[in-house]
Amino acid sequence: MAESAPKAEDYIRWATGHTHHAPPGSPPIPHDVRMELVSKPFTQNIKATGATGVSLFADPCNHPDAVGTILNFAAKQADFFPCKGLAGQTEHFNNYIAKVSTFPGFMLTFDEPICHELTHDHITRMIDDIVKSYDGVADVDISKIVKSIEGMANSIVNVIPAMPGPVIFTQMTILGNSGDPSLLLTIFYTALQLKVDKTGKRTITSPQSYIIHRKAFRVLTASLVANADKLFDLLGNGSFDDWLKGATSPGGSKLSCLEERHLDAKKET
């Protein structure tokens, strides 16, 4: 039996914090007081329109900004803002994922982990694993995935904590389909262990096992349009630029070991 379309009251419950718990899916991030989180989201095939008011939700052409508005609202409720730094974000990440997962206008289309093992010091293998994890889930420009991963590694190496520990790498993307107003939201996250090498650099340890958690949501375009007035009343104006700024971890000028090794690998091929 087909699931009924979201109604205005469903959006009201979500915005006011009365939504039921998220359905079972990927396990929550394990709690570790040393754990840091780094985020480098990106977009593809979408363009900001600068729309405001009800048209933000009523016109499908404006839905990239509408999705950014929704995600920013979820981030505020979960107090999840990677732009503030790497420490202290992990504890809010689970709440953010749960909030996004329960938005009535998003349909969960994919939610599966994939296990990998890094048995040597070739960090490019991990990059390849993350790139391949998009296969069958989302059609994404590989160069954007790699740039995002390298940016996350750069953020890690430019922050020196008292004691290196586990780190969450999270990629969040808003993808548009060429010639089609529908959008796909993906959230991939990987838990890794860091250490300090002899030169003082922070590096990803090997061997280690890691799991790439993959979630994908289809935006219910017709539902946003049908409930545009109520969504604007509840969420107000926003844009995906606002979301990108809040969801992007600070970086730095120093190259990470991952970036250096990936550059070396490119030279050798």
Rank of each mutant, 00 (worst) to 15 (best):
P207W: 11
P166K: 10
F57V: 04
P207T: 12
R218S: 14
T109Y: 01
A228W: 06
D32W: 04
A2Q: 11
G238D: 09
D197M: 03
F73Y: 14
A75Y: 05
I127W: 00
W243D: 01
T109S: 14
A153Q: 03
L235R: 06
P64R: 09
E9S: 15
M172D: 07
A191H: 05
E150D: 07
K195C: 10
N227C: 10
N227Y: 04
S101W: 00
F169L: 15
A153I: 01
F103D: 01
I97Y: 00
C83M: 12
N227K: 09
T90W: 01
E9P: 00
L192D: 05
R218G: 09
I160N: 07
Y134G: 00
Q171P: 00
T186K: 05
I168T: 12
S253E: 14
E117N: 12
T52E: 13
A98N: 14
K84Y: 10
Y189E: 08
A66P: 03
A247L: 10
S223C: 10
A191I: 13
A98R: 13
C257H: 06
D241K: 13
F81P: 00
A138M: 11
F232W: 15
I204N: 02
K84D: 13
G176S: 10
N62V: 08
S223R: 03
H92A: 14
V159F: 10
M152A: 06
S55T: 14
A265I: 00
K215L: 15
N237I: 07
F80C: 02
I149G: 02
G238H: 08
F240S: 03
K195I: 03
F81M: 08
Y96A: 02
L258C: 12
I149F: 02
H20T: 12
D241G: 11
K144P: 00
F73L: 04
L56G: 06
G200I: 05
N95P: 00
E3L: 13
P161R: 04
K47H: 13
I70F: 15
S148W: 05
Y189S: 07
T102Q: 08
P24D: 14
V140D: 02
D32I: 05
P27D: 12
S55E: 15
P60E: 07
G105E: 08
W14C: 08
L244V: 07
K201V: 00
T49L: 09
H262E: 04
E3Q: 13
P104W: 08
P250A: 10
Q193D: 14
E3H: 09
V67W: 02
T199L: 09
F240R: 03
N177H: 14
S39Y: 03
P161Q: 07
F106P: 03
